[in-house]
């Protein structure tokens, strides 16, 4: 059981980071469960139906989700705030019912035969993405994103093409969620549409909000705590989901900014002698 939780935690950290990457430009995405589904299925088709290696499947998964992100994001990102969020919710519903109706990938019965993921793949991916995010926090891009989040019009006036930046990050986040979905499907050997319901998207957003949105460690903590917390509540039996929901509500009441709310300055004044 422990290995299973280590695996789920790793997947959920990747998913939380995929939401975090999109949120860096100020967009809250409720579509990442859908991108995960696209990734799970596309990677599965490539390895099972075409017999190609897992790496090819994961690459195809990331690319497919990035393309869907581009097509959905280009019109959506021109709208702002709550409308944009609703477009991502719509996308999540579309993909959920879409995969149920495609018989090529098994419809509601799901699709099996994927294999080959180990825990090392998962945590290797966590390490690589983590290093990239660490590099980001020490680059001018992080400052530009912080500026866009705080006041996108002022950032625009400074010369930042905000729509382009948002679209790029939306595609990166989509690709990462799909990559995680590909790893997930090849670990589970079998996937079905009800693995990727809209509620999955909501949970991933919760990991990020609960962990804290202002630094890369918040989503890690949020994903870890929320993946392991239901297990800790096993003693309350049938009330588990209720207690879990209560824990989330209380945490948001008392730590609205999340568990790790701090933001680190990207640069300090050079102390000159």
């Amino acid at each position: 059981m422990t290995a299973e939780y280590a695996f789920l935690t790793g997947i959920n950290i990747l998913l939380a980071w995929s939401v975090y990457i999109i949120l860096l430009s100020g967009t809250l995405s409720f579509a990442n469960g859908a991108f995960m589904a696209i990734g799970g299925y596309v990677a599965g088709i490539v390895t099972v139906k075409f017999g190609l290696p897992l790496a090819a499947g994961l690459a195809a998964a990331a690319l497919a989700a990035a393309v869907v992100g581009l097509l959905a994001g280009y019109p959506a990102l021109r709208t702002r705030g709550i409308y944009l969020m609703l477009v991502t919710v719509g996308l999540a519903f579309m993909v959920e019912s879409g995969v149920q109706n495609i018989s090529y990938i098994g419809g509601v019965k799901g699709m099996g035969g994927m294999q080959g993921t180990t825990i090392y793949h998962i945590y290797g991916a966590v390490l690589v993405v983590g290093l990239a995010l660490w590099k980001l926090t020490r680059s001018p891009l992080q400052r530009l994103l912080d500026a866009v989040r705080e006041d996108e019009l002022v950032a625009g006036a400074l010369g930042v093409n905000v729509v382009y930046l948002r679209l790029a990050l939306f595609c990166f986040g989509a690709a990462l969620a799909a990559f995680a979905g590909g790893l997930y499907s090849h670990h589970m050997f079998f996937i079905a549409p009800d693995h990727f319901t809209v509620i999955v998207s909501v949970f991933v957003v919760l990991y990020v909000i609960m962990g804290g949105v202002n630094n890369m460690w918040g989503p890690v903590l949020g994903a870890t705590v929320l993946t392991l917390l239901p297990e800790a509540f096993r003693v309350v039996g049938a009330w588990r989901q209720t207690v879990f929901g209560l824990a989330i509500a209380l945490l948001l009441l008392f730590r609205r900014e999340g568990l790790m709310p701090f933001r680190m300055a990207s640069v300090r004044r050079a102390r000159r002698s």
Binding site: L141, L144, A155, V160, A265, R268
Partner: peptide, 25 residues
């Protein structure tokens, strides 16, 4: 940008990076 430091405010306006945000990664 109230949540950023004074130095960061000025550095965010650096035109070399503002015009090519992804490259500045």
């Amino acid at each position: 940008f109230r949540r950023m430091t004074v130095l960061e405010n000025v550095m965010a306006a650096n035109p070399r990076h503002a015009a090519r945000p992804l490259r500045s990664f």
